[in-house]
Write a protein that binds this DNA or RNA. Structure first.
Lengths: 243, 243
DNA sequence: CCAGATCCTTGTTTCAGATCAAGGCGGCCT
DNA sequence: AGGCCGCCTTGATCTGAAACAAGGATCTGG
């Protein structure tokens, strides 16, 4: 169900590290691979394969066997979990430089779907697992990153359990801004590659509440809603609202 | 603020592995240490120190430097995060066999408080870190465990964001039951070492809603409220309610 | 045995956000 | 153009859980 729907366009990067070798990779210093020496990088590169996914394509599906792990080099992805009755919760959004499959699981616990055209560096899980076993400091790096993710999950739980709609939305915008900044995107205009429904499912709200809250923030000149995103007009006030 | 309030009673377990050596430890096979050979276990043991905390004592506090990591060998602990304005969220409850400080953080991201009399196996973080660096399969084990925790955090987010009060409470009871079962406690009567307020703060509810929901489940003969816990009378129905 | 404290339950009222309902807007296809 | 579709907004109403309020139960120490 996955590879057919997304029809990924595979281009190996093995052939003499032609156009997109790891050494020139734009996420080289912000992602997990930053832990590696150039020798190790070469080894990692030999395992990698660039794959492009169309918008709305599926990278992998909840409960399916995890055949690979991924490093996003272009585009954004939504990560979600489904309940049998159809309710869904969006765990989060993965951006450029994010690693999917950090925990090296046997089966994926979430579904990953491309929000835009997405390019990933794909590693066979077995081969990556082997490399990790042989390179403890790569594992260390992975583990650090997992600890960081755990902290983010804790923030999110507090947000979901103990905060109101406005706080949630403000906080969401600020968090996204901080993440963009970390990968070098510091524009005042915040791209929102996900739809309102995705934001709602991420914050435990309904689409109407998200829309109303954004509209209110716009009316109060805290943000300005623009096509494809929002402009943050009054950061201090937004920070005040977001806690 | 921490060591004074809990007045921990320290007993080293170095002295000729007197009463409580790792080899005879009751959490030996259910905890992280299960990854180690007996040689490595001896080394680990030389780093460990048993510490007893009184009920309501603080093991460590949010934002304070993480001087140690812990393995719980007796009792239960609540893990919480505070908001500047006083709201609190209870991240979860740690039981016998649980490891605190999995991510080996520089600073603790949560506060840990003893719910009952708690005994922990305490490891200096630096020393433990060194051991981990030298024993990749211990790190691997830690990482696996972190991945598992991440999965639990995801479940909890879905619970907080997309489920009603009754679902939350039923699910909480079932999750606790499963965890007790994993450490060999399979009694029909579920101990609840935490108070109603803690449950409320864990589920994103108020104490009144938790109390009412439990009362209703009791009235409908799904559970029976007993001092210090609940008896699970109608497991199928509870599972139906909990999703 | 009583005073005070802590924790839990129960009743009543209020409110934030869900739900229901109806457009609006822009893109895309023919 | 026109019509359809997906996405977003806005308004009206409803409701589940919060907030407020008042005891009751259990424990502790004097």
């Amino acid at each position: 169900m996955s590879s057919e729907t997304c029809a990924p366009d595979e281009r190996s990067c093995r052939h003499g590290r032609s156009e997109v070798g790891c050494a020139e990779c734009k996420v080289r210093f912000i992602s997990v691979c930053a832990a590696l020496t150039s020798d190790e990088l070469a080894e990692l590169e030999s395992l990698s394969r660039h794959v492009v996914h169309e918008p709305r394509g599926t990278l992998f599906t909840q409960d399916e066997e995890a055949s690979a792990v991924y490093n996003i080099t272009e585009g954004s992805v939504r990560l979600l979990r489904l309940l049998p009755d159809g309710r869904r919760y969006v765990m989060g959004f993965a951006l450029v430089g994010d690693f999917l499959g950090l925990a090296l699981p046997e089966r994926h616990t979430i579904t990953a779907e491309a929000l835009s055209s997405v390019t990933v560096c794909r590693f066979e899980r077995r081969a990556f697992q082997d490399l990790v076993t042989r390179k403890p400091h790569l594992l260390q790096r992975l583990h650090e990153r997992a600890g960081y993710e755990l902290g983010l999950a804790q923030d999110q739980m507090l947000l979901l359990g103990r905060r109101g709609a406005e706080e949630k939305v403000a906080n969401f915008l600020l968090t996204l801004r901080r993440r963009y900044a970390r990968i070098g995107l510091t524009s005042v205009t915040l791209e929102l590659p996900m739809g309102r429904q995705d934001i709602a499912d991420h914050l435990g709200l309904t689409i109407e509440t998200v829309s109303r809250t954004l509209t209110r923030l716009d009316r109060e000149k805290v943000i300005l809603i623009v096509p494809g995103g929002v402009r943050l007009l009054d950061l201090p006030r937004l920070e005040h609202l977001g806690g």
